[in-house]
Nucleic acid binder design. Structure first.
Lengths: 296, 296
DNA sequence: AGTTTTCTTGCCTAATCCTCCGTTGAAGGA
DNA sequence: TCCTTCAACGGAGGATTAGGCAAGAAAACT
């Protein structure tokens, strides 16, 4: 398959939607596309477990600890919910940034992983929850096939789900396999940390006792901190705070509620504290941010 | 004055030394020049209080907290001893990176500051110890004059010291004035922090009690940490560690002593710990670093 | 305009996160 | 074999945070 086939197909879909710029969701799996015709400023968001294929242009994505540069022809696999800062770096009107995002369903992965040799070559190197590899032609072919199968109702019902499984299976065979297997293998540090991130997300507003998390993960506190940071790029509390602030910004922009109430809703007990940290993360205090980015 | 005059003069001096690349010290004030014909990799160094004028090309300089991009035509003033990571980003054979570095003598500044209105417009904005401004034509003219005065013995003896004072005086009038006055004004936070950095440097190998520093500075611990970080870009202990590691690397490259002994000499009590942190900061553990950068 | 509410910002204290260091033990290299 | 590196751990305390309080700024509302 010519690698351009997928790009062309996606571009056509975006054109059909009349979407010059922005994001466009597609298909039952939650897949979506992105197209931007100029570089963007840095923006903080949350990544969910996903496969991201950059087909044209380039972006930069990072946590406080590490930053990656993703050029076209590369694929990104994120294995955890992860607050990141990202920025489109290469995009012009004639050659816009185009990317495809395919959410990873960890349950499907887990189901498939049973059939895979548990731990071949445990040459675990980089525990970070983002891995970056050159894109895989067979994977692209599968994604394109999936896109086509979504076009008509019958194939979408019958074939598309099968292809989704295939795509997940290919993830476990391709260059990202290492990272994902580590995550699924039940005794691994990565898996334990995943548990912890899950607990944090499950009730953001609650104050978590980090000692508890460490204990549940069966590690010493210091080992837990170290692994957590290696995987997520931030410390546990930072991680929670980032998620809280991102949720708060979401609320701030989409509702008209009082700022102090939003602060309480995401777990802060003092609006002063909230204001301070919001400004530190996003550059502007909440009120000004709302003025600049009014409710949509 | 054409802004190119200074560049031409410096280039001529470098040529005269037959120096295609690297640094070249000049004159009694400790002034020196830099020229590189290609971008460099990141490298950690210590900045002393100085004025750095980038005349061609561009560099990137940062601490863990902040990174600045310095293009030609801009001048940098550093007011503290500061461990930084810097990298030449723009330099080609035809258009090399050329910069002039003029050390700042804080005693001269203090002497001059007495004659300046103590605190006009205390619009203190950015407490960071690096400030970045467009370069100042009169300053360039003074620097060029100083260079010329260094050419012959008599003018170097008689006139150059006067011009050095003039340069310092101009610093107190130019765009960097704000930053420097804050440093000199005896009650300011910047000044207090400067004291603290000085204490740390005075005996690197000693373990400092940060509480003491805070107390001497007359601040609460948390306020001290905050100000310290705002000024230096790192926390007090990080600051000390960076200086220690830089000194260790210096020793590593210029002597043949055992690595563990160098570790002890700069204040570490375990060579394992030293090895780990050295690798974290410089990318390679000490032994490999010595192999790659043998004693000169 | 004045008044009131809401938000922002500064510094402090207390609490605790989380980083650091020295240890041990094992593996890698000269 | 010796020196160095690596990985995990536990303890110590350095660094950071949350929240209180208060002064100021900015909106919002009379």
């Amino acid at each position: 398959m010519a690698p351009a086939a997928l790009l062309n197909h996606v571009s056509a879909l975006l054109d059909r939607e009349g979407l010059a710029q922005g994001a466009f969701a597609h298909g039952p799996s939650g897949m979506h596309f992105l197209r931007y015709s100029s570089p963007t400023v840095q923006d903080a968001t949350v990544y969910r477990p996903l496969l991201c294929l950059v087909m044209q242009g380039a972006k930069e994505v990072g946590t406080s600890a590490r930053t990656l540069w993703v050029a076209d022809g590369q694929s990104l696999v994120v294995s955890h919910a992860l607050p990141v800062v990202s920025r489109i770096t290469e995009a012009t009107h004639d050659r816009p940034y185009v990317a495809l995002v395919f959410p990873i369903d960890l349950d499907i992965l887990r189901g498939l992983a049973a059939d895979v040799t548990p731990k071949t070559g445990v040459g675990a190197k980089d525990p970070f929850s983002i891995s970056l590899c050159p894109s895989d032609a067979e994977m692209e072919e599968a994604l394109l096939r999936y896109l086509r199968q979504c076009e008509t109702v019958e194939t979408r019902r019958l074939l598309a789900p099968i292809t989704v499984r295939e795509i997940h299976a290919r993830l476990l065979l391709g260059p990202h396999a290492e990272q994902l297997r580590r995550l699924l293998w039940h005794e691994s540090a990565a898996s334990r940390i995943f548990q912890a991130t899950f607990v944090i997300q499950s009730d953001l507003a609650r104050t978590v006792a980090v000692t508890d998390l460490a204990q549940r993960a069966g590690m010493s506190s210091s080992a837990f901190f170290e692994h957590f940071k290696a995987v997520t790029g931030t410390s546990p509390l930072q991680y929670q705070k980032d998620l809280r602030l991102l949720r708060a910004r979401e609320a701030l922009r989409s509702t008209n509620g009082k700022i102090s109430e939003i602060a309480f809703a995401v777990g802060y007990e003092s609006s002063a504290q909230f204001s301070r940290e919001y400004a530190r993360k996003f550059g502007l205090p909440p009120r000004q941010d709302r003025v600049l980015h009014p409710a949509q």
